[in-house]
């Protein structure tokens, strides 16, 4: 556990010692603002809730999170530090977990910095803060899902552009798994069980129920299981491809 904390701390500090962190946070905050106020019609709706704010998070994450994860392993490979890191007395899982948690904490910081919108809505009206809190939790869990997918794909390819594009596509599939766009590929030939299984993988379905304020234990389990699966895949992939 101590090793995980050490790696976590190093990673998190390193985000803030490069421009990546600041660019990401600024763009994230600007875009959430633009989406909420211009496209989500925050004022015009005249309702004291943050639905316009949260409903755009999946689409923001779709493009911003792959930008964080694409360099997760690529940089270590490029600079050769992967060799250093993996010959220290730590296990592969500690490294993978430490790096993932740092990325997750970093997106958590970006998400936390959207607090002015929460203050705004409380100033303007009388929203249900329980729902808002649940939506923040849901958004954070979803970010973790995106990150774990991105991290595993970054382990797969040492090319950052390839990692970015593959991550966007994979995350897009996960987002829309419950929608015709994805399901139409499977209708007609796949058994109904499989189609139901794929549909239940949808990020959007799980996220939208949480962001309405319903923290269903199953949605929670879903994200935790998804993250665990991709972290294990990440560790296996790095083990196989670390020398590439």
């Amino acid at each position: 556990m101590k090793a995980v904390v050490t790696i976590f701390r190093r990673e998190l500090v390193s985000y803030f010692s490069t421009p990546v962190a600041y660019v990401f946070i600024v763009i994230f905050l600007v875009l959430t603002g633009v989406f909420t106020f211009y496209i989500g019609n925050f004022y015009e709706r005249g309702q004291a809730d943050l639905i316009p704010f949260f409903s755009f998070h999946p689409w923001l994450y779709l493009f911003l999170i792959p930008a964080i994860t694409m360099r997760l392993w690529a940089e270590e490979r490029k600079s050769g530090t992967i060799e250093l890191l993996l010959t220290l007395p730590v296990s592969m899982y500690q490294v993978v977990l430490g790096k993932f948690l740092a990325a997750w904490a970093f997106t958590g910081i970006a998400l936390g910095l959207t607090f002015p919108i929460w203050i705004t809505v409380n100033y303007l009206g009388d929203p249900d803060n329980g729902v808002i809190f649940a939506a923040y939790v849901g958004s954070f869990l979803m970010a973790g899902g995106f990150l774990s997918i991105g991290a595993a794909i970054s382990a797969l390819s040492r090319n950052q552009v390839v990692a970015f594009i593959l991550t966007v596509v994979t995350c897009f599939m996960f987002l829309l798994a419950g929608f015709p766009l994805v399901l139409d590929f499977f209708y007609g030939w796949a058994p109904q069980v499989l189609i139901d299984g794929i549909a239940s993988l949808s990020f959007l379905t799980h996220y939208s129920s949480i962001s309405k304020g319903v923290i269903d234990f199953r949605d929670f389990i879903y994200f935790v299981a998804l993250i665990s699966f991709f972290l294990i895949a990440n560790a296996i992939l790095i083990d196989l491809k670390k020398a590439d």
Partner: peptide
């Protein structure tokens, strides 16, 4: 038993990599 073995070793990899921003 990689962790125990690695504990007893010091290693300078080829090209002496290090985290550039640190």
């Amino acid at each position: 038993n990689p962790v125990e073995a690695k504990r007893r070793m010091g290693y300078l990899p080829e090209g002496a990599p290090g985290y550039g921003e640190m």
